[in-house]
């Protein structure tokens, strides 16, 4: 399962970077979304995928028995998803306001503050 996930994550990163290199700011934000999802999947996969072995401690023991899934990456990925959601919704509102003010969906026309 991991090699398949690795390929999927790789495709997501590639697609994200391709989108971020476009001039349109809408595509830029789509690229950012794909990028954060790629990173989330990567964290999820990083500790290995284990099926059907929840990390529960059986009655009478102090540690889970046998091979269990690592719960930490799942907690991390939850945090990361929430953060990415918040930041990306800000980015979506930002490009909407920017479009209203600059009246262009084109990064090449936003060069006034560059030097």
């Amino acid at each position: 399962m991991e090699p398949l996930m690795a390929v999927a994550i790789g495709i997501l990163y590639a697609a994200a970077i391709y989108m971020m290199l476009r001039r349109s700011i809408v595509k830029l934000v789509i690229g950012l979304m794909l990028l954060s999802n790629a990173a989330n999947l990567l964290i999820f996969t990083s500790a290995g995928l284990t099926r059907g072995a929840p990390p529960l401690v059986p009655t009478g023991l102090t540690a889970p028995a046998g091979q269990v899934a690592d719960p930490l990456p799942q907690a991390l990925v939850l945090t990361a998803i929430v953060i990415a959601f918040g930041v990306l919704s800000f980015a979506v509102v930002l490009i909407r306001r920017a479009y209203e003010i600059v009246k262009a969906d084109d990064l090449d026309r936003m060069k006034d503050t560059d030097t």
């Binding site: 971020m20 700011i25 830029l28 800000f90 980015a91 930002l94 936003m110 503050t113």
Partner: peptide
């Protein structure tokens, strides 16, 4: 306007 343009680069 300048803030929006600057912010897009900063945020990205």
């Amino acid at each position: 306007k300048a803030q929006m343009e600057g912010a897009i680069k900063y945020v990205t």
